[in-house]
């Protein structure tokens, strides 16, 4: 796939997804399809696909002890070991995993090599990806958590607290969410990183752009729906609650922007288990992250090892003790 096509195909796919909800203008039954049936199918695909892939991963054996380490392994008592960089027990592994998941610790050490004046090779830190990725993921989490106001009745109090914190700034009379800004800026950066830098563009696949464009579509449609093309938020909540209580009822006043947002979200979560977004559970299944660096203390048994018949020295001596003693060869046991 050449470079233009691998961006244009996902862009075309997302455009089609944005246009599809125009069908809701046909009438109530089309609205029911887009408001209830498609989201339910997407949720089914999300949960079943997610569980299927996690179970498949859990069935894969790990042949070697391969944690990726950057520090001294625990060995002799007078040699200082690095507990986080070379975790030797479950607590250290958990702590390192926590820092990895919540703060992208290993990405913080991302570095780049540049030729200065065409001659001198210089290494330096490169933390923009870390910053952009962290800002994006945390914003996404806060935004999803804020959405609980539509799915809980009475509203889950922590969702209200987080919403209040997020809306410290006010724009005109409407609430302005900080995370809406941050996620738009960070997603734009993450997208243009794959377009502007030739090296990153070269290794990017169509699926990388598809994931980014889908999330961008979700965010843009959501922000527009909130601030410009307003929808009936009360009707949205009634729809969500009616679905959760298994009595789906669609209000025909909701408005087209909502269906566009919902279509993009449905596609995103249905696509989730088939995509690189499975890095969310995948981080927990990475042997380089979830294993202890204790190979000097504990022998790692390869689970696919065939049982090997070995002939130990003790058995050898038992077999040849008499001839050995007769020839004057020292033995461990005389009998």
């Amino acid at each position: 796939m050449n470079n233009a096509v691998k961006i244009l195909y996902p862009l075309a796919a997302v455009t089609i997804l944005v246009l599809l909800p125009l069908l809701t203008l046909l009438g109530p039954s089309a609205e029911f399809v887009f408001a209830v049936i498609i989201p339910c199918l997407a949720l089914a695909a999300f949960f079943s696909g997610f569980i299927y892939r996690v179970v498949r991963w859990a069935q894969s054996p790990v042949p070697f002890n391969i944690p990726s380490v950057g520090g001294q392994e625990k060995s002799l008592p007078w040699i200082k070991d690095d507990k986080i960089e070379s975790p030797g027990n479950n607590w250290a592994v958990t702590w390192r995993m926590f820092l990895e998941i919540f703060f992208f610790r290993s990405l913080f050490r991302n570095s780049r090599a540049d030729l200065v004046a065409g001659q001198r090779l210089v290494y330096g830190g490169s933390r923009w990806l870390w910053l952009g990725g962290l800002a994006f993921h945390w914003s996404l989490f806060i935004i999803i958590f804020r959405h609980l106001r539509f799915f809980t009745e009475p509203v889950f109090p922590p969702a209200t607290w987080l919403t209040n914190l997020d809306s410290l700034f006010q724009f005109s009379l409407a609430t302005l969410f900080l995370t809406d800004f941050i996620i738009l800026i960070s997603l734009t950066y993450l997208f243009f990183r794959r377009v502007v830098s030739p090296q990153v563009k070269y290794i990017s696949l169509a699926s990388d752009y598809l994931a980014l464009l889908l999330i961008l579509g979700v965010v843009i449609s959501g922000v527009l729906m909130r601030s410009i093309f307003k929808v009936d938020v009360d009707a949205v909540k009634r729809l969500a609650i009616s679905m959760i209580t298994f009595k789906p009822a669609v209000d025909s006043n909701i408005g087209l922007p909502f269906y566009i947002h919902l279509m993009l979200v449905s596609t995103l979560i249905a696509y989730f288990p088939f995509s690189k977004m499975m890095h969310a559970p995948g981080i927990l299944f990475s042997p380089t992250r979830n294993m202890k660096n204790d190979s000097r203390a504990v022998r790692h048994i390869n689970p696919w090892n065939h049982p090997v018949r070995v002939h130990t020295y003790e058995e050898y001596e038992d077999e040849f003790r008499k001839p050995m003693m007769a020839a004057g060869i020292p033995v461990e046991k005389k009998q």
Partner: peptide, 30 residues
């Protein structure tokens, strides 16, 4: 492998993923 941990993790995932369902059922005000 690690059956307990994996199934436990999946159970937590499912509980969090379906949080609105049982929250609403528990509150009974929907």
């Amino acid at each position: 492998f690690d059956k307990g941990k994996v199934l436990g993790g999946l159970a937590i995932f499912l509980c969090l993923g379906t949080f609105p369902l049982w929250y609403i059922a528990a509150q009974g005000k929907a």
